[in-house]
Nucleic acid binder design. Structure first.
Lengths: 178, 178
DNA sequence: GGCGATTATATCGCCGCGATACATCGATGG
DNA sequence: CCATCGATGTATCGCGGCGATATAATCGCC
């Protein structure tokens, strides 16, 4: 899904690694914090796959003073690949790791796919909630205070997330009516 | 930290892999969901390190009918190692992944170490909160609705976690006074 | 004039996940 | 009555991502 994020960012403008990582941090902040140990290998992978290419040495007199930077830009295949990933939003799209990334690119996502992702995510979080509830009632009397507190907090924040998703979905629907 | 969890669980009773995994699920549920792909390699690692040993074939006439199970139990070195991990609670103890695990074993953790972990965790979450706040104000006007919503939700749940930690800490302190 | 922070690329080993394979037992039901 | 499904159980493989680390040049500040 790192792949998805990088392709999406490069859609905005050609960028070099360091910049991509910063933009990603601003974009995701709360959720995932991709490290350089993932960034550079992924960039090379994308390049080998022909989805991005290095731009020319870029001898722009203005921007000189910096050290050697590798600026990447999307190839047509890269754009196609990103569009594919957007359209084929499957079950792995709504797990904890990917959902935030996909949400961050919602403005570029078709409305019907947005809806599918939001509802898939909601279902997924609801399932977790049910699991937590069941576990909490089943084990409630036989576990120590700290573990119970851990579960209580987990359940509560899961419930909050469901409510949040409901709001997002409602908002989508009201926009659809316009 | 998987190591820590397994050693802690085996402190309760000797167990085989499948059972360890189920107990772990009940214990952590909300947070981490260790998979078999981690479980068995880790068990072997612990065994090689001499921290756990396989119990004898266990020909107990009663419990037969099941397939070959490998029941592990702690060695003295294993117990020592667990005590070490409990005592030397360092900075990596309070990151997202480890904190839940450590909290689940708080009943076996000395009061002063409990306090150190809780305060370390609070500091860590507070720092994240500050980062989110800064990012939210800095980028507020130039990002799309969805990303902003993502950050808002992230910030809010982080704030909730800080409040929760404050309650836990307050409770610790009031218990200390008794 | 020197020192730390920032900009920048890159690698390495490790950890843990998801998928998968395989085998056995109990229960459910056609 | 037996078939099939779900739970019990052990195990491996590849891969994606992280944290630590190396390297280096430039910028701003005192």
């Amino acid at each position: 899904m790192f792949e998805f994020a990088l392709l999406g960012l490069l859609h905005e403008a050609p960028m070099h690694g360091y910049e991509l990582r910063k933009r990603l941090h601003d974009l995701l902040g709360a959720f995932r914090a991709f490290s350089y140990g993932s960034l550079y290998p992924t960039l090379r992978r994308l390049q080998r796959a022909g989805l991005i290419v290095e731009e020319g040495p870029e001898e722009s007199a203005l921007s000189w003073g910096r050290r050697a930077r590798k600026v990447y830009k999307l190839t047509p295949e890269g754009k196609e690949r990103f569009a594919d990933l957007l359209a084929n939003a499957g079950p792995q799209t709504w797990d904890d790791d990917s959902f935030g990334v996909h949400l961050a690119f919602f403005s570029r996502t078709p409305a019907d796919v947005r809806m599918r992702i939001l509802e898939g995510r909601r279902r997924c979080v609801e399932e977790r909630r049910e699991g937590l509830r069941e576990r909490l009632t089943r084990t409630s009397e036989q576990i120590d205070r700290y573990t119970r507190e851990l579960h209580r907090q987990g359940l509560e924040s899961t419930e909050r997330e469901v409510r949040w998703l409901n709001e997002l979905i409602a908002h989508e629907q009201s926009e659809q009516d316009e």
